[in-house]
C-alpha cells in the first residue's frame, strides 16, 4: 500500500497530465459523435453573451451590404403581391381575402423565424455560427437556416435557452440534399474542408447535361431543408471516369464571411415524416424477418 502512495506521489504530475488529457480527449470525441457539446448549455450562454456584445459593434461595418440584400429580397416579394396582377377576363374580379388563415385547404408546412448571427467562423474545417435565438424562442435541433437573401447557410445542431449553434454548410460533416434547377435531378452537397468558396455536389447522373453556371437548389429528399431554396451555382465540372455520376464544384451563393440577419425555417411536419419513415423501415424489416 505504501508503495502505491509513493508511486502516486512520485508521478503525481504525470498522472494528472494523463488524466487531463483523457478528460479533454473524451470531451472531444463524444462531441464529434453526437454533433453537440458536452456541457455546452451554460457555456453557450456565456460565449453567446460576449459574442453578441462584439456583434453589436461589428454590425455597423456590414449595414450597407445587408440593406442591399434585404432591399433585393423585398423587391422580389413586392412583385408577388396580388395587386400586381389583373384578370383579363372581365367576368370575374379579384377579391382580397381578409381571413388570416388560408381557406383553400392549404396547410402550412414551413415556418420562418428571423434571427441574428452573433458569431461566425469560416477558417476551420468544422465551422459553426451562433444565433441569438434559442429554446425559449422556439428554436429546435435540425431546423434549416437561410441567409437574408434566401440562400441556404446551415442547420441548427445545438440549442441553449437564448442562443443556438448552427452547423454551417462549410462543415466537413454537413450533407444537404440538393437538386439541379433545370433537370430536377437530386444529389447531395458536401464540403471537403478546403476552400470556403467551393462546395461539392455529388450523385448527379451523367445523363444530366450540366453546364457551368447552372443553379443548384435544395432538394426534396430532406426533412430539414425546404425544397427550392438556392444553394449556389456550378463553377466547375470534374470528370470522374470511374462512376456514372458527376462531381461538381459549386460556388455557394451565400457569402459565409458576413452572415448577419438570417431566417430559421422550421418544418412543421418533420415529426410526422420522421415517424412515418421509421414505421415503414420497421414494417419492411419485419417482413424480411418473416420471409427468412
Amino acid at each position: 500500500m505504501r508503495n502505491v502512495f509513493l508511486f502516486i506521489r512520485r508521478y503525481f504530475t504525470f498522472i494528472s497530465f494523463v488524466l487531463l488529457q483523457v478528460l479533454a480527449l473524451s470531451m472531444l470525441f463524444r462531441y464529434n459523435k453526437y454533433q453537440r457539446a458536452v456541457f455546452l448549455g451554460k457555456a453557450n450562454e456565456i460565449t453567446g453573451y460576449f459574442n453578441s456584445k462584439y456583434d453589436n459593434v461589428d454590425d455597423y461595418f456590414h449595414l450597407k451590404e445587408e440593406n442591399l440584400r434585404i432591399h433585393k429580397m423585398n423587391d422580389s416579394l413586392l412583385n408577388l403581391l396580388p395587386g400586381n396582377f389583373v384578370k383579363v377576363d372581365t367576368g370575374s374580379h379579384v377579391i382580397t381575402d381578409t381571413v388570416t388563415y388560408d381557406t383553400s385547404y392549404l396547410v402550412r408546412k414551413y415556418l420562418a423565424k428571423e434571427a441574428k448571427v452573433v458569431s461566425n467562423s469560416i477558417n476551420s474545417q468544422k465551422n459553426y455560427f451562433q444565433i441569438n435565438r434559442g429554446a425559449r424562442q422556439g428554436i429546435k435541433d435540425n431546423m434549416a437556416v437561410i441567409n437574408s437573401d434566401g440562400s441556404v447557410v446551415g442547420q441548427i445542431v445545438g440549442v441553449s435557452d437564448n442562443f443556438s449553434q448552427a452547423m454551417s454548410l462549410l462543415h466537413v460533416h454537413s450533407t444537404v440534399s440538393a437538386m439541379m434547377k433545370k433537370s430536377r435531378n437530386n444529389g447531395r452537397i458536401e464540403w471537403d474542408g478546403q476552400s470556403p468558396f467551393y462546395l461539392t455536389l455529388k450523385n448527379i447522373p451523367k445523363s444530366d447535361s450540366v453546364l457551368v453556371g447552372d443553379t443548384v437548389l435544395t432538394g426534396i429528399n430532406s426533412y430539414n431543408y425546404p425544397p427550392g431554396w438556392i444553394i449556389g451555382r456550378v463553377s466547375e465540372i470534374v470528370e470522374d471516369k470511374s462512376t456514372n455520376f458527376y462531381v461538381l464544384r459549386v460556388r455557394p451563393s451565400a457569402n459565409f464571411q458576413n452572415l448577419q440577419q438570417v431566417f430559421v425555417i422550421e418544418n412543421l411536419q418533420r415529426e410526422e415524416q420522421v415517424t412515418l419513415d421509421k414505421a415503414t423501415q420497421k414494417k419492411v424489416d419485419d417482413l424480411n424477418k418473416r420471409k427468412q
Binding site: 479533454a24 470531451m27 472531444l28 457539446a37
Partner: peptide, 8 residues
C-alpha cells in the same frame, strides 16, 4: 467553448 470544439 468559443470555437465549439470542447477538448481539442
Amino acid at each position: 467553448y468559443f470555437k465549439n470544439t470542447p477538448g481539442l
